[in-house]
Design a protein around this nucleic acid. Sequence first.
DNA 1: TTGAAAGCGCTAACAC
DNA 2: GTGTTAGCGCTTTCAA
Lengths: 327, 327
Amino acid sequence: MAQTFVTAEEVAKRAGVSRSAVSRTFNGGSVSKSVRRKVLKAAGELGYRVNRLAQGLMSERSNLIGVVGANLSSPFISRQLDLLSIGLLRRGLQCLLLNAADARKDIAPLIELLFEFRAQAIIVLSGEPPTSIIDECIANGVRLILINQRLDRTDTSMVLSDDSHGAELAAMRLVKADCKKVVVVSSSSQTPSQVRRANAFSQRMGIEGIEVVAWSGGPTSYGSGYKAACELLSDKTIDGAFCVTDLMALGFLDAARLEMGRRVPEDLSVVGFDDIPQASWKSYQLTTVAQPLDDLTDKVLTALDSDETETRLQVVSVFMVERTTAR
Amino acid sequence: MAQTFVTAEEVAKRAGVSRSAVSRTFNGGSVSKSVRRKVLKAAGELGYRVNRLAQGLMSERSNLIGVVGANLSSPFISRQLDLLSIGLLRRGLQCLLLNAADARKDIAPLIELLFEFRAQAIIVLSGEPPTSIIDECIANGVRLILINQRLDRTDTSMVLSDDSHGAELAAMRLVKADCKKVVVVSSSSQTPSQVRRANAFSQRMGIEGIEVVAWSGGPTSYGSGYKAACELLSDKTIDGAFCVTDLMALGFLDAARLEMGRRVPEDLSVVGFDDIPQASWKSYQLTTVAQPLDDLTDKVLTALDSDETETRLQVVSVFMVERTTAR
DNA sequence: TTGAAAGCGCTAACAC
DNA sequence: GTGTTAGCGCTTTCAA
């Protein structure tokens, strides 16, 4: 257990060169063929690995990117994390993952921890960092990237999908399905995204002169969608539903069909949001608004790269995926 | 951008004490009340954060735990990662996540990278590290923890669920359902877990004298399960199926019912493995073998703690979850 | 309890 | 091209 890694000094000694020759060999400095070969040989025999901690200490570049988020096992977020971690690795960046499950409301301590590791940038998948923390990021030159979080400041990068437009797409789709009375269901967590979607939807329906009842409760889950349908569909006049996430839509769909005896889409049209993999499963075939996650990921990585105060706010466009749950 | 973090030296200067007094204040060393107060005050005003990189340089404890895995957005793995990242954080450990998506077959470079960050331990969610790397872990005192990977060595920690027993449970369940000819479906990725499950199942069925045809193909996905059912169920005599993962089972189920016109469980009994959230969704209600993930996570964290060559191999027990897809 | 000094493993500026 | 030297920010003896 107490074994310790080989240092550059030991390699230098074995190769019969100076400590800096070793350093240069591993950092693309100029070294003669012969020295390089000797160093590589000695390093190989000894099992030498550069110490990135020490390296980062000097260059003040840790290569660490902090990622904080909650709900990491939800289909949507997990895909986001999957793509993000691949993208980071490809760019030679390391991903320091902090699960915000225990800190839903206050992710400040998590971000502070990331400071201590001298993370070069911090990506927030969910949760809203307090202003003081944002200021501290800027003061210390740590780039902050917020996903699906819209703040009223110009000094932090935000990547968000076009929730309002998506919700309008959903609204228009239900109009097209000739719905007379619709419901919009969201969770009680009231994330900014969900709120924007629900509001934009209601507003649009208002303009169209269609009655909408809003329901919200529980976590953002299949179960909450299920519950929503059970409670709402005793009202036989409801003929349309917009669930602000697919996960809820799927639960809603199951309860509507299997519990409340509705035929979809004949009696009831349902539209979701996100386009998670399960939405395309044969039992569901959910009509939904897609957020292209690869695009979102690209934009996050772009924000990471941009050295200066470039594109502060990037929005990823959404589109309707037509399947079978809307008439 | 070029701003830099405050150092302990600056704090010391402002507080009018020595550099070491600052260090002691933040590490529970013995300091007088008054000094501690002065230091804390100065640190607060300056926005000081200890530099863990430098800290780890001295103490040779980085506090970083490397996690490598692929398929991070699959329901099963993502849940695993979710629980794991929570558990690590609770123990004051940081999670350095490396996505093995690009390196399915060879995770060696990823682990080497983790060496460079002086990770204290490495947790491998998927993929099998080459022997040379394992040796290097040991040589450097890096604890290695393999999940659902059984190696024939006594010097590395392994946590695996009882695949064979689970498969036998599945077999017995299909026997109880009075199946005459069954199929076992797995993916073409042939992970050790899947192989163990498929083999144990076939073997058991052999003992019971029941004919079993093995199918494998595609990635471990809904789509592959779907495809399996389409190809297999043209044989009308098949009346039972064991899918080695729930994801495949769900696809199988959908194709069986919606594409191949089977009634489940009347004509066909289906059993899965894992018990992912979707297995309990109303449209599926899949009878399956559950792997208790919180237990698995606990065991991984235990392996992390155990300072010495303690429990090298821990197996988490599985159990049958009875729902509606087996007669 | 406190400060001075040494050193963790590395890189970079400087001479040679 | 190569070695020497001086730190990076921190912890940790060692005296005081």
